[in-house]
Amino acid sequence: MTPQKELKLAYSLTIILLVVGVISYAAAPAKTPDEPVRMMFKVVAGNVLFDHKTHTVETGYGLACIDCHHHRAEDEEEEPFLACGYCHQIPKEGEALPQSCVECHEPDEIEDTEMIKRADAFHSQCEECHKDAGIGPVKDEERCAWCHFMM
């Protein structure tokens, strides 16, 4: 190839790839699917990688949605699955319960409910099930690192 031809090739390559690149970025599908595949919880103690899909599908661990998304009307298909932190949060100053409760409840009907905060909700739900089923490392000191990937 002569230098002129090489230069022409490089210019055409640049223009074509620039167009392809911009179109691909514009056309790339939205990032978050309706139902999460995997999720990463960012924690100072080390990030937790949770394989949502494998926990739910039949070929994985085959759990029912309600096993984890525990606080919802069982028969209502339409109702969205809420993040745990939506309810499991520290109530604002002066309030007994998180604001989100009153979207579905009258304040007086739920007055004496004990709420646990988000991280505790995770720990107790995830671990109750795992320990019942004998999953994960046996030694307690290895358990934290099993979920929390220290960087």
């Binding site: 390559l13 640049t14 790839l17 620039l18 179109i23």
Partner: peptide, 20 residues
């Protein structure tokens, strides 16, 4: 898929653009 195509295409074209 298309995400990978976008990264590769943009990367080659911009490498050339920076050199130019």
């Amino acid at each position: 898929g298309i995400n990978a195509v976008g990264v590769v295409a943009l990367s080659i074209s911009f490498a050339i653009i920076w050199e130019l």
